[in-house]
């Protein structure tokens, strides 16, 4: 095993983490501010990917597609907030889970109705094609580096937005005491719609970015959603900082587990068995990490007071 391979795998873990952060940030924001469990967040991710693929195919430009994915996901987010989600804030979590699960089914079948059952094509823009050399003689895909860059920019942007702007102040206030901020005359309904649309846009961005790397198809959002929930539970529900660190932890642990566990097992048992057993263990690894963290810190790494 060379240094170049190790470095490449670390970058892979970081890139997966950054992608998860884009999903988890919106999810944790929505939960933190509105106390809402939104299972349909994965559908917004899918909408971003489909919007990007459809617009990129029509215009020939990935970048216009990327902009369209933000707009489409934010619009879809705002529409479902106004029509469905708004009625759920006062209900308990079970009602929220049921209603947003119904939204998943509606969005999935709606997307199939519009785009058909076959996966769409979305390619990496020419500017970001190919690989760049890494120190140690390895190579790394340029597009994945760009995703890491986008993640860093989004993390910084969210930090500035939440800690330095008036909107951020209201979001923080809404997190800690929503009755009081409403009593102070802040239009809480609009604030909720804006936060929901923001979270949706981030999910759409993640969907579009990842869509160029994998298959744009109905149901692509749910696996990402499950990982995003693991991330926010590890990070502490409602905490953006927790989402960032949780996402990177999950990304690196998952990638390194898939890579190192079968190799480590091969030292102890025959290689023919080490492969499947190692792969099975690796797929459990992030859940084991989650269980360990929850055993010692039941409300996650960076719990917000609730």
């Amino acid at each position: 095993m060379s240094i170049a391979l190790l470095l490449e795998q670390l970058l892979n873990g970081l890139q997966l983490g950054v992608m998860l952060f884009l999903m988890a940030a919106g999810l944790t924001l929505i939960f933190g501010v509105m106390g809402l469990i939104n299972l349909a967040h994965g559908s917004l991710y899918m909408i971003g990917a489909f919007a990007c693929a459809a617009v990129a195919a029509a215009t020939g430009s990935f970048w216009i597609g990327l902009a369209a994915s933000l707009v489409a996901a934010a619009a879809a987010g705002a529409i479902i907030e106004v029509t469905v989600i708004r009625r759920l804030y006062d209900r308990d979590h079970l009602d929220q889970v049921l209603a947003t699960f119904a939204l998943i089914l509606i969005f999935s079948e709606g997307t199939r109705w519009l785009f058909g059952s076959f996966p769409l094509y979305l390619d990496i823009p020419p500017l970001l094609q190919g690989a760049v050399p890494l120190p140690g003689g390895g190579q790394y895909q340029l597009y994945r580096l760009a995703i890491i860059g986008v993640g860093v920019v989004v993390a910084l942007g969210l930090y500035v937005l939440i800690s330095r702007t008036r909107l951020g102040m209201r979001i923080r206030a809404g997190e800690s005491d929503r009755e009081m901020i409403a009593a102070l005359g802040v239009d809480i309904r609009t604030l909720y719609t804006v936060v929901f649309a923001l979270g949706a846009a981030l999910a759409g961005l993640a969907g579009a970015l990842v869509g160029a790397l994998q298959s744009v198809q109905v149901g692509m959002g749910e696996p990402a959603l499950i990982l995003a929930f693991v991330v926010i539970v590890i990070g502490g529900i409602g905490s953006i900082k927790g989402a960032l660190l949780g996402a990177i932890l999950v990304g690196v642990v998952d990638t390194m587990g898939r890579f190192l566990l079968p190799k480590a097992l091969a030292l102890m048992i025959p290689a023919a068995q080490a492969g499947p057993i190692g792969a099975a263990l690796a797929s459990m690894l992030i859940y084991i990490v989650m269980a360990l963290i929850l055993a010692f810190r039941p409300s996650g790494l960076f719990a917000t007071q609730s």
Partner: peptide, 18 residues
């Protein structure tokens, strides 16, 4: 062996390269 339904193969591709 990869996971069923896996969407990212960066870790496997790195091993192929090596």
């Amino acid at each position: 062996y990869t996971q069923v339904g896996q969407t990212d193969y960066a870790a496997e591709i790195a091993q192929i390269r090596d």
